[in-house]
Every structure is written in C-alpha cells, then in structure tokens.
C-alpha cells in the first residue's frame, strides 16, 4: 500500500536534523532504519507530515569501549552490534539480542537508536537497557533508562530531540536472553534476560507490560540465596500484560516465570 504524502529532508548532522524537526514542526518524524515506521506508514496507521532522514549522519554509527562503559551510536545497525568484537567482548548479551532481532534484511537496516526511541513494549534492547541501568543520550541531555521508558510508545523525548547514543555498563559474566516466539523473525511473545553484574543478578522481561520490566523481586530472591526455580516464581509478581493476538495475559505470566528460570539456569 502507498503511504500518505509527506515532506522529506536529509540531515547530515544532528544539529541539522534537530533544526529540520523544528522547521517542519509538529507531525515530523525521524527516519532511521524505518523498520517500525515504514510498515505503519504503509498501513496509514502513521501519517507523519514530514520525515527527517538521519541515515546520512555517519558519526552516529559506532561502537566504543570506554572504560567500564560501552557506548553505541544511535545509528548503529543491528548487524553491526551482532558482529562487533567490541560488543561481544564487553557486553555479549547485547550482541546476542541483536542477532535475534528480525531477519538479515531487517538487521542490515534497523538501528539501536530507532528501537529505543520507538519504545515498543516488544522491543528487545529496551529490556537490556532498563535492567542494566543504561543511559539514553540525546542531543539535549542524558536520560536514565528507568526514566526513559514511560509507557507504551511513550518517552520523554521532545519533538526536536534525537537519541544519539546508548551507554551500557560493561558486563561479560554469565548471561542469557530467551526470546520466545512462533517464527524466527517475529517479535517476542515474551522475552527474559538474565545478566550477572557486580556479583548480583539483573533480570529483565520483554512484552509483559506497556514498558520493559526489571524483575527486581527475582533479583532480590536470588540475592537472598533462593534457587533459580524458586526465584523465577516471582517473575510475574505485579505484572499486567496486555491481551494480544499472540497470547493472553495468563499465558504471558506463565512464560515470564518459565523463561526467567531458564535464562538464569542457562546463564550459569
């Protein structure tokens, strides 16, 4: 199907992109990998007035180890994160998550900044960002992940604000992300992540609510010495997942418990 008409401009710097967003005003959107936006535009569920194409901002495409932090430019494609030795050495769970997104064609274009800014509850990177206390850096400020993912598709980003970088802590210890879905290229029905960090566990869940979820009750139980199968029973505490075409809430809560147990066990 054919999207509704829109104005189009290419930006070659973040400053230019921001001023273009200002010039176009309300209803302008940033075009990065386009793998969420363009399908919505084709279905006319999204009808932005203008698109600011940031694919030409080459200095947003990088992976840098910086002491105890791993810095990833917003325009870094999933395929780059998947294959990057720097990511594999410093935060291997992120390379594994990147390899589980979409398919080859999607990974060749989709970007980490796009996934984060879109804030889909079924996005995979937001779960890792939230549970590891990553920072979302924009052209205006640095926003901790726990303040960034406010609601379904809702972030504190201003209309002319652009995500430029995601900063994760380095964590190369035991880890596992399990993405449960019917077909390889699908979004997660539920996803569960476990990462050992500074002697404790970080546990995150995908697609069990309007935002990614950090399962602190599971982390606390593990800290107090509970076995993985006992701790994982807390994975569904307080969850209210949405009913959708793929699964009902009870089933998602069941998956949250089962996948959390498996993620912890398989990480060890």
């Amino acid at each position: 199907m054919i999207p509704a008409a829109f104005e189009y401009a290419r930006a070659s710097s973040v400053e230019e992109a921001s001023s273009l967003l200002n010039r176009f005003g309300e209803g302008a959107k940033v075009l990065a990998g386009g793998h969420s936006l363009v399908p919505l535009m084709r279905l006319r569920l999204a009808q932005p007035k203008a698109l600011v194409d940031i694919n030409g901002i080459k200095d947003l495409d990088y992976v840098k180890a910086d002491g105890s932090r791993l810095r990833i430019g917003a325009l870094t494609r999933h395929v780059t994160i998947q294959r990057s030795k720097v990511v594999r050495d410093n935060l291997p769970i992120l390379a594994e998550v990147a390899g589980e997104i979409g398919d080859n064609q999607v990974r060749n274009l989709g970007t980490i900044g796009g996934v984060v800014a879109y804030a889909d509850a079924a996005g995979d990177y937001p779960t890792i960002a939230l549970m590891l206390d990553a920072d979302i850096v924009t052209n205006q400020r640095t926003i901790p992940a726990e303040d960034f993912f406010q609601d379904l598709f809702t972030t504190p980003l201003a209309p002319d604000e652009i995500v430029t970088e995601v900063v994760f802590p380095v964590a190369s210890g035991p880890h596992k992300y399990i993405k449960f879905r019917r077909r390889l290229f699908d979004w997660a029905i539920v996803g569960a992540a476990a990462q050992k960090l500074n002697g404790g566990w970080r546990i995150g869940l995908t697609n069990v609510g309007p935002t990614p979820v950090r399962a602190k009750a599971v982390e606390d139980a593990l800290q107090k010495g509970a076995k993985p199968e006992e701790a994982a029973e807390h994975a569904s505490d307080g969850l209210e997942p949405a009913d959708d075409l793929r699964a009902n809430p009870e089933y998602k809560k069941h998956l949250a418990r089962v996948l959390t147990r498996r993620a912890i066990q398989q990480a060890e």
Partner: peptide
C-alpha cells in the same frame, strides 16, 4: 504489505534489504 515475506529483497550496496521498506 508488512515487510515479512522478503519477495522484494534486493542488494543495496551489497547488503540484502527489503525494497518495500525503503523510500
């Protein structure tokens, strides 16, 4: 119409992409 089937796959500077998902 949903960027799933891959029938429109082409190479863009050598990289496989779905040409229905780019302008």
């Amino acid at each position: 119409d949903t960027t799933q089937c891959g029938a429109c796959t082409i190479l863009l500077d050598g990289q496989a992409v779905k040409s229905c998902n780019l302008f």
